[in-house]
Amino acid sequence: MNIFKKCLVVFACITLSASMISCDDNAELRDQYNSLFTEVIAIHDELMPEMGKLTELQEQLQAQDSITSAQQEALDKLKESDNRMMSWMHDFTDTYVKDRTPVAKMTAAELQENIKGLKTELEEVKELRDFTNESIASAQKNLK
């Protein structure tokens, strides 16, 4: 084997190795992206049944003959929770569902940017879950 062929084989091996390493990096990033996305969706799915409770509790509070200030505050929190959920879902869908690049085709930079965004979304949806649960508890307390 002449020196040219040896160099070509070595170059091919280096290129293949570099390619495999970058694929592995992207695989880790894709796994991280998918894990975060799944976690965000799981909390969203946990919240969705609560949206019916928000509406039901709003109707119960509004049906009162007279509303105390505490009941009005509870009603306002229920409405805010509903509005925040609708706004969050709209924003999340626009950013991470509609017309997005498939995860398998994202570059490392795109994956890193989206991972950062999903971490923010995760914190937001957790705060939304907590606020919704507090709103429901407050309304239930003020209906007794």
Rank of each mutant, 00 (worst) to 15 (best):
F4N: 02
F4Q: 09
C7S: 05
L8Q: 03
L16E: 00
S19E: 01
I21P: 04
S22N: 08
D24Q: 12
E28P: 03
L29F: 02
R30L: 05
D31T: 04
D31C: 09
D31L: 10
Q32A: 11
Q32K: 14
E39C: 05
A42Y: 12
A42F: 11
I43F: 09
H44G: 13
H44Y: 14
M48T: 15
P49I: 15
E50A: 13
E50D: 15
G52W: 11
G52T: 15
L57Y: 00
L57C: 01
E59I: 12
L61P: 01
Q62G: 10
A63R: 01
A63L: 03
D65I: 08
D65A: 10
Q71L: 03
Q71G: 04
A74M: 03
L75R: 00
K79R: 07
D82L: 09
D82S: 11
N83P: 06
R84W: 11
M85K: 12
W88Y: 14
W88N: 00
M89R: 13
H90Y: 15
H90Q: 14
D91C: 05
T93P: 04
D94V: 08
T95D: 12
V97W: 14
K98E: 13
T101Q: 13
A104W: 06
A104Y: 12
A104C: 09
M106V: 07
A109D: 15
A109G: 10
A109N: 08
E110N: 02
E113H: 02
E113M: 14
N114K: 08
I115V: 14
G117A: 10
K119V: 06
L122A: 05
V125D: 00
T132V: 15
I136T: 03
A137Q: 11
A137G: 06
A139C: 10
A139W: 00
L143A: 09
